[in-house]
């Protein structure tokens, strides 16, 4: 596992850079679809522009942060119950 040539093609820095680029391109296209389609919201908020995109992003960031905060209080070494 020294030079890049020996690494699997999927984990070479070039591939990863390309994956990020195409990934972000895909995200942009998905949001732009909202420009062309008429919203049929069930409620008010889900008719806003790119609702599912920003909602997904925001709640996921919130959940990771919440889990992190909860972890401060509830995390223990995984040998915690070993003395049973």
């Amino acid at each position: 596992m020294t030079g890049n040539d020996e690494k699997h093609w999927l984990v070479r820095p070039n591939t990863i850079r390309l994956l990020w680029r195409y990934g972000i391109g895909l995200l942009v296209i998905l949001v732009l679809v909202d420009v062309f389609k008429e919203p049929h919201p069930y409620f008010g908020i889900d008719g806003t522009f790119g609702f599912y995109a920003w909602f997904g992003l925001v709640v996921c960031v919130a959940m990771v942060l919440f889990a992190k905060a909860l972890g401060v209080f509830l995390k223990r070494k995984d040998s915690y119950y070993d003395d049973e």
Partner: peptide, 11 residues
């Protein structure tokens, strides 16, 4: 669904 899931993946 794609918007929701792919942006969660991005997160």
């Amino acid at each position: 669904m794609l918007q929701l899931l792919l942006f969660s993946g991005f997160a």
